[in-house]
Nucleic acid binder design. Sequence first.
DNA 1: GTAAGACTACTCGGATAACCTCTGTCCGAGTAAGTATGG
DNA 2: CCATACTTACTCGGACAGAGGTTATCCGAGTAGTCTTAC
Lengths: 133, 133
Amino acid sequence: MKFSRGTNYALHTMLHLALSSSTNKPVGVQQLAEQQNVSQAYLSKILTKLVKEGMVSSVSGAKGGYSLPYNWESISFLDIIQAIDGKASLFDCHFEHGPGCPIEKVMVSAEEKMEEKLRKTTIADLIKNKTMN
Amino acid sequence: MKFSRGTNYALHTMLHLALSSSTNKPVGVQQLAEQQNVSQAYLSKILTKLVKEGMVSSVSGAKGGYSLPYNWESISFLDIIQAIDGKASLFDCHFEHGPGCPIEKVMVSAEEKMEEKLRKTTIADLIKNKTMN
DNA sequence: GTAAGACTACTCGGATAACCTCTGTCCGAGTAAGTATGG
DNA sequence: CCATACTTACTCGGACAGAGGTTATCCGAGTAGTCTTAC
């Protein structure tokens, strides 16, 4: 039970992009990758996931790169995490003891407590209080 | 990001033991394993973890098996999960951008919301409302 | 000066390799209860 | 009868095999600016 390193990268790049969003110029993978000590190839793979979910927009060609879409301030932590990790529940009881495993109920309910917090906080929230890095 | 199958087994086993706790006789791995379609060898491996954490007591030799200790009603979901999965945080930011990554703070706080729920509910709580299987 | 073409700096996406953790198996050792045996 | 040894039914724990998913790399393809060159 660990959050994947991928979501770690995703969250950090989103933060970086958010801080660069004022310039309106797309940021290259190179720059993003360097800052986190990841290969460009791998980071771009993560970013395409985010692009597909509409949480990042990409511009190809020279002077291209990644930037945040107009509505970026409403993007929550949960959105980002689910874009990378998938939306599946953290716990499923594979046994067949009738519908509604009491254990699963508790687990899912606990999980939702966490998701609620993640849904409520956005990348934009971070910027209000802190500066980068 | 998934709860391991091991914790699933552990939780179900604990529930089973709790329901059998009235008899005061230890339950063999065989019986526990059959019910969950796991091999004895693997389940016993999980159980020894729980024994080491003092959440299950074992009696070896003939007529031996596993049972719950006297204070079992206070054992929470979180106790069980951490006994299997470890107590490490679900998220760590490996980057060195000064102490206190803002992202990590959010993630840890969300995680604690979940843990709070898991700490508050016990196996005993389940039994109050439901019968086995 | 300008239009066509080559060049360069990017992202995109599939295929694949390396790796790590979870899952599961095998087997030998220890332990305690029940059972047989010999005096 | 009673003590000793043997058998049986368990847990304990280490070593190791297998699977699946995450992490990461490589490389070819597409795309859009930019620069060069020829007229």
